[in-house]
């Protein structure tokens, strides 16, 4: 064989090996969490809050954390959409391709890269200044801060893909910029906005670092914004940190619940945007 052919097959082999390693590591994560957690998974896990002695292996479940996570993620993701969509529209419809737009995008990129623990630390500092205790409200604030740049950039990319001729047609009919943005561009981009929403929702549910510093932890289901709340990632983390093997096993079972939610969101986003894409103008 010629040296070039040897090199060719060597690198092709390495590439296939690498791809297999990446896919394999995903499967390994699923498999080992499932293997460790399945024996402890039960209906009570998702229908009950922790009873007395839960953390030494007695009865109960993590309904508190499931509900807490949903409250937190719904609140933060809705807020980020409310802030992110207008800013993204501003970038594409008003700034266009100008230098201003690229400065804004650069700042948003930096904000996207800021680790969630830094947002947590920031909100924690604000809480100290306000003499506030950890609560669902501050958790939502922290998660919104780190989610909103992601949401804005994701929607921004979707809006860029809306065909320019649609905007021009609408302007030709005498519409204002605001009308074009809200009635044409946003509707056209709806499938993409839905995927951005679900993507960010998944991030919000999975975040632990920002929440660790701001939301507290409780065995009860929160009833108001000023209550502390438990979240699934924190439930996983704290249960694994206990010395009891039974409780540690429940950490893996809680991990399965978290994974199922995240995977469902990911599939829903794929399916939903495909389904909705049928109705838009290309």
């Amino acid at each position: 064989m010629k040296p070039s052919a040897v090199e060719e097959s060597l690198f092709r082999g390495l590439m296939i090996l690498s791809t297999a390693l990446v896919v394999g590591s995903l499967l390994a994560v699923f498999a080992s969490v499932a293997f460790k957690g399945l024996p402890a998974l039960s209906v009570e896990m998702i229908t009950q809050t922790p009873k007395g002695g839960y953390y030494i292996g007695k009865e109960g479940g993590i309904l508190n954390a499931i509900v807490g996570s949903l409250y937190l993620a719904i609140g933060a993701t809705a807020l980020s959409l409310l802030l992110g969509l207008p800013v993204a529209l501003f970038l594409t419809e008003v700034c266009g391709d100008t230098r201003t737009a690229s400065y804004y995008r650069r700042v948003l990129d930096v904000l996207c890269g800021v680790p969630s623990i830094v947002y947590g630390a920031f909100v924690f500092t604000i809480m100290i200044v306000l003499r506030a205790r950890a609560s669902l409200l501050y958790g939502i604030v922290a998660v919104t801060l780190f989610e909103f740049p992601l949401m804005t950039r994701a929607i921004d990319e979707v809006l860029k893909k809306v065909p320019q001729r649609l905007r021009e047609t609408t302007y030709a009919l005498g519409a204002t910029r605001w009308e074009v943005a809200t009635r044409v561009v946003t509707r056209q981009a709806l499938p993409g906005i839905l995927s951005a929403f679900l993507l960010c929702f998944g991030r919000a549910i999975g975040d632990a670092a920002a929440v660790l510093l701001t939301v507290g932890y409780t065995d009860n289901i929160p009833t108001s914004l000023s209550d502390q709340a438990a979240t699934l990632p924190l439930a996983v983390f704290f249960q694994l940190a206990t010395p009891m093997p039974e409780v540690q096993q429940r950490a893996y079972a809680s991990g399965i619940i978290l994974l199922v939610i995240v995977i469902t969101l990911s599939l829903a986003s794929r399916w939903g945007s495909k389904k909705l894409t049928r109705y838009i103008n290309r």
Partner: peptide
């Protein structure tokens, strides 16, 4: 690979 990107960090931790 997209799915891998969406897995929460705490899951990687327990793994």
């Amino acid at each position: 690979i997209d799915l891998l990107a969406g897995i929460p960090s705490v899951i990687f931790g327990i793994w």
